[in-house]
Amino acid sequence: MTLSQTQPITELLDAATVQSICDEVWPSLVGDGEAFVPVPVPPPAELVSAWVDIIGPWTGSVVVTCAPATAEALTESVLMTRPPTVVDDEDVADALGELANVLGGNVKSVLPGESRLGLPQIGPAPARGRLDDVRALVGQWRGNYLTITVQGTAPHPSGTEVPQ
């Protein structure tokens, strides 16, 4: 089956399901009483992303994107650190990556067929594929911009299938 023949994520996953996954993940991973609120706020100038790949009948990535300062605050919340303890870049990459990993694992579980989950990665968000193969939740955490994007793999630059 070619990439163009696979069902786009918009037919496999609705926004309510992604939100329900967030509703479960936030309190248990980020902290008691914490929530991802699906009310958009303006995006910051600088963004950082963490993501995991899902490889299966549907192939793509689950991406968490926020400002570096938000990623740091998320890390402090996940690790339950208190001043004067400070988190370093490795902590931030690790905690944001684990958030993407737990979200990704739960997204994978609601997709049809058997899929594999990649290891978490951090950096600029991976390129998106087909325009209709994106399910994005734009919202906030503690009033700070944060998005969760489930996106198909970008097509190979040649315009054909991604080589296997």
């Binding site: 248990s28 991973l29 737990v102 694992g105 994978k108 989950l117």
Partner: peptide, 27 residues
């Protein structure tokens, strides 16, 4: 203790010798 929550994965882990299975996120 994993995000792998599909029944097939749970069965595979238990068959390999795991005693219990806890899915992330957990409390």
């Amino acid at each position: 203790v994993t995000t792998e929550s599909e029944t097939g994965q749970i069965v595979k882990a238990l068959a390999a010798g795991a005693h219990e299975y806890l899915i992330k996120p957990f409390t």
